[in-house]
């Protein structure tokens, strides 16, 4: 990881006593874990504060009261950058502790239910996360999940922020409509499908539709995708959301949550 240092001016301004760099700096943002007055925070330095960034801030601030979504404490302009001071979530990235879920259907389903419960008000308000994957889920010490990175979340009632046709996606965990670039079919049901992939992956530590874009694309040409994880509960959940057509997936959030209960 390329390391960069915080400027003394910024350290003084935010009264930072300790810090460590959390991510490789990108053109858009760099994240640090900082300590201010003895409390840890995530400090994000946003180099290009575009519409996507504003949307992430808006969503997180709107749901500040939900423990499963990081609270934003401060958004401030500093020189040419925008600084976000965000709640630091003690715990692990789900992607780092996959082995704890492998073969444990109860733990997997329970986690999916908790993520669904966190996102329930978000979905009701017509936002879609669109990038649910283990790397975007942090697990607190008590096992509760926190959903991160609403950077590509979409408000269905607003104009899309991405260029026509193209959509940001982590293709391992993408839904058929994301794969096909059908932006008009993106909805809360897209997140349902992606959580199906996450569930399958956690239980088996394998991807349900293969490891190549071609294999996945081939699967998504089928009307009905039927998977077998080797566990009936995981199968019931996954096959309840793995419909190529979004219109065939659960219509109501409660129906989805019911699927994620044993």
């Amino acid at each position: 990881m390329t390391s960069i240092a915080l400027s003394q001016g910024l350290i003084d301004h935010f009264k930072i006593s300790e810090y460590e760099q959390a991510t490789t700096p990108s053109g858009q943002k760099t994240v640090f874990i900082v300590k201010i007055e003895g409390v840890k925070y995530a400090l994000k330095i946003i180099h290009i504060a575009d519409e996507r960034f504003e949307r992430e801030v808006k969503i997180c601030q709107q749901y500040n009261h939900i423990t499963g979504i990081p609270s934003i404490l401060k958004v401030e302009k500093y020189l040419n950058d925008t600084i976000i001071l965000e709640e630091y979530i003690e715990g692990n990235d789900l992607s780092d502790i996959l082995d704890q879920y492998k073969g444990d259907h109860k733990k997997v389903i329970d986690l999916i239910f908790k993520i669904g419960t966190i996102l329930k008000p978000v979905w009701y308000d017509k936002y879609v996360h669109r990038d649910l994957k283990p790397q975007n889920i942090r697990i607190r010490a008590n096992g509760d999940p926190v959903v991160l990175d609403f950077g590509i979340a979409r408000a269905l009632d607003e104009e899309s922020i991405t260029a026509t046709g193209g959509q940001p996606l982590s293709w391992y965990y993408a839904s058929p409509e994301q794969y096909a670039g059908q932006k008009n079919l993106i909805s809360y049901k897209t997140d349902f499908f992606c959580l199906g992939i996450v569930a399958y992956f956690l239980y088996t530590n394998r991807l349900p539709f293969g490891n190549t874009k071609d294999l996945i694309a081939q699967t998504f040409t089928k009307t009905i995708i039927h998977i077998d994880s080797g566990n009936k509960y995981i199968n019931e959940f996954c096959n309840g959301v793995f419909y190529t057509s979004p219109s065939d997936r659960p219509r109501k959030i409660e129906t989805f949550l019911k699927l994620a209960q044993i």
């Binding site: 008009n184 809360y188 057509s245 979004p246 219109s247 219509r251 109501k252 959030i253």
Partner: peptide, 16 residues
């Protein structure tokens, strides 16, 4: 098929 799915997508939204 695509047009039919677009219509069904709208008809099966949670707000309906």
């Amino acid at each position: 098929k695509i047009k039919v799915e677009e219509i069904l997508f709208a008809c099966t939204d949670m707000d309906i």
